[in-house]
């Protein structure tokens, strides 16, 4: 809050016309009621039902405790899903954040065409992931796809992009990286432009190397924005569905079945809603766990350093 807003706020509270909180809830309530009815109630319902045997076809629903979760973690399919999800999250987050930061730092000067480039960079994050998925499926098509066509033209070996399990995961990750890195470039560019220039210019005068300036000055100053970028990507990798669904439907043989894809298949192809609900909450729990590590690790490190 600015200094000017402070006294105004105090006056507001003392004024005889001060708004009552009941009136506030009157204005907030339509939105709150809609969210409670269509968002929060279903989520709580499905969380509760993740402890039940819940089939839409069978009328009987009975309490099974943690067995949906236990079955999930014991099933072979889910072990694969977990492995795929962890590789997908780790690789895409690291590449997207590193590439986003690299590009942002390098183009952060008065370059001709930067404004146009900024506009173009906004396109991939904003277009439908479903279109991105289909488009990359076409690009990676084994016989007629452009990527293999180029490899063939260059005399390089072709890759079984979507038919081989390992390559399929790579292909899906490439599509995700293509779609999401540009937003990080824009976020980092905005961050870099709001940094104080004095320490950087002082270091330049002192003859520091560009790499030294980046590592010792820019990066520490960018830390808050870096944390935001990591947080956004962690949340979104555990929500990714559309790109994968249109590229591979989780295949071949579950090689690209992320947690959300697994949950969707359990619910709408195996009609096992209780299991699917459990799996979808595992996805949420994992993204919360990653966020806890993200925010907990620096805190723990500081605490350790202070104690030693």
């Amino acid at each position: 809050m600015t200094a000017a807003a402070q006294p105004a706020g105090r006056r507001w509270r003392r004024s005889p016309l001060a708004p009552s909180w009941q009136k506030g809830y009157l204005f907030a309530s339509p939105a709150l009621i809609v969210m409670i009815a269509i968002l929060i109630y279903p989520l709580i319902y499905s969380f509760v039902m993740s402890f039940y045997r819940w089939d839409l076809s069978a009328p009987s629903q009975y309490f099974v405790g943690l067995s949906n979760y236990r079955d999930t973690f014991n099933s072979l399919g889910f072990k694969q899903t977990l492995r795929v999800q962890l590789i997908f999250s780790a690789v895409t987050i690291i590449i997207e954040v590193a590439a986003g930061m690299g590009v942002a730092v390098l183009v952060n000067s008065k370059l001709r065409g930067l404004k146009l480039a900024r506009t173009l960079l906004l396109v991939p994050p904003m277009i439908a992931p479903a279109v991105v998925g289909l488009n990359f499926r076409w690009l990676f098509n084994g016989q007629y796809g452009l990527v293999n066509g180029i490899l063939r033209y260059l005399g390089l070996p072709e890759a079984p992009w979507l038919s081989d399990p390992n390559w399929a995961l790579v292909s899906v990750m490439i599509a995700d990286i293509w779609q999401n890195t540009p937003l990080l470039v824009l976020l980092f560019l905005a961050g870099l432009q709001s940094l104080p220039q004095d320490p950087i210019e002082a270091a330049q005068v002192d003859g520091a190397s560009p790499w030294g300036i980046f590592w010792h000055i820019t990066l520490p100053l960018m830390r808050p924005i870096l944390m935001i970028a990591l947080m956004l990507r962690i949340i979104d990798t555990f929500r990714t569905f559309d790109v994968v669904w249109l590229m591979t439907q989780g295949g071949p043989g579950g090689a690209t079945s992320l947690i959300t894809v697994n949950a969707y298949q359990l619910a709408f192809q195996s009609a096992s809603f209780g299991h699917a609900a459990a799996v979808s909450y595992v996805a949420l729990a994992m993204s919360l766990l990653f966020l806890a590590v993200l925010y907990g690790a620096p805190w723990a490190a500081r605490k350790l350093r202070r104690n030693s």
């Binding site: 269509i38 279903p42 989520l43 569905f241 699917a276």
Partner: peptide, 12 residues
């Protein structure tokens, strides 16, 4: 995750 909402919404 959207799927966590889609599952119960389908039932509701």
């Amino acid at each position: 995750p959207v799927v966590a909402l889609a599952i119960p919404l389908f039932a509701v």
